[in-house]
Computed example of a mutant assay.
Amino acid sequence: MTKPVNRVGLMLAAALGLCVLAGEAGAATRVAVFDFELLDTSSEVDIRGPKPEEMRRLALITDEVKRRMAAAGYDIVDLAPAKARIEDATPFRNCNGCELPIARDIGANIEVIGLVQKVSNLILNINFQIRDVETGQVLRAGSADIRNNTDESWLRGVSYLVRNRLLDPPPTGKAAP
């Protein structure tokens, strides 16, 4: 005589197995999120470099991208061991992929680089690019125009990009088939 199958128990076990697999897959994707850079093409450009509040905002949005990616289950790679190499290579917008070996050497599967272009104190553009560290292939890119040079507008722009471009669908480090 056979025992009746406990379908609820089987469904719960299968769901738990899928959650474990999904957790392992998410944790396996290691991400190097490089600091966002500023390209000031406005008439306010200062030869001494970016204004202190804009440097703070660059750090603010970089940290926000890291926070949101970590909350989505990605393992954010510590860039501190590569600090000198990063400083030598920046700005990344001018180096034609020189950050890829850095990301590879610190164990990342994918990298995120970003740029804020300041057209004026009212018009700014936040851009990012995700690349597969192994192949250098661009997996996804996005851009958002923002109005007003404030913490709130920068965070709103990055929030839009993360929700609608960076994490939708979740990056895996491999190009879609």
Score class of each variant (00 low, 15 high):
residue 50 P to S: 15
residue 18 L to C: 14
residue 159 S to T: 15
residue 131 R to Q: 03
residue 131 R to V: 00
residue 146 I to Y: 05
residue 46 D to K: 09
residue 160 Y to E: 14
residue 12 L to D: 07
residue 118 K to Q: 13
residue 131 R to E: 08
residue 122 L to N: 12
residue 28 A to L: 04
residue 127 N to S: 12
residue 174 K to M: 14
residue 171 P to K: 08
residue 65 V to R: 05
residue 123 I to G: 04
residue 64 E to G: 09
residue 174 K to Y: 14
residue 56 R to M: 14
residue 111 E to T: 06
residue 21 L to H: 02
residue 168 D to A: 03
residue 151 D to H: 08
residue 47 I to P: 05
residue 18 L to M: 13
residue 108 A to I: 02
residue 46 D to F: 03
residue 49 G to Q: 14
residue 112 V to M: 07
residue 152 E to L: 14
residue 172 T to G: 09
residue 22 A to H: 12
residue 120 S to A: 13
residue 144 A to Q: 09
residue 5 V to L: 15
residue 152 E to Y: 14
residue 48 R to C: 12
residue 14 A to Y: 08
residue 102 I to E: 01
residue 124 L to I: 14
residue 77 V to H: 03
residue 19 C to K: 07
residue 20 V to R: 01
residue 34 F to W: 05
residue 106 I to T: 03
residue 2 T to H: 07
residue 48 R to L: 15
residue 109 N to W: 00
residue 170 P to N: 03
residue 92 F to M: 08
residue 147 R to D: 02
residue 125 N to R: 15
residue 86 I to D: 06
residue 49 G to Y: 04
residue 21 L to Y: 11
residue 63 D to Y: 00
residue 155 L to G: 09
residue 21 L to R: 02
residue 118 K to M: 08
residue 122 L to F: 13
residue 8 V to R: 13
residue 112 V to D: 02
residue 74 Y to E: 07
residue 80 A to N: 06
residue 49 G to T: 12
residue 50 P to H: 11
residue 107 G to H: 00
residue 153 S to W: 13
residue 138 V to Y: 12
residue 86 I to L: 02
residue 96 N to T: 01
residue 48 R to Q: 15
residue 159 S to R: 14
residue 108 A to G: 06
residue 35 D to T: 14
residue 111 E to Y: 02
residue 172 T to M: 10
residue 11 M to N: 10
residue 93 R to G: 01
residue 91 P to E: 12
residue 80 A to K: 07
residue 83 K to L: 04
residue 116 V to E: 04
residue 91 P to G: 07
residue 122 L to C: 09
residue 104 R to A: 11
residue 166 L to D: 04
residue 80 A to P: 00
residue 144 A to C: 01
residue 105 D to Q: 06
residue 124 L to W: 02
residue 117 Q to P: 00
residue 155 L to N: 08
residue 11 M to W: 11
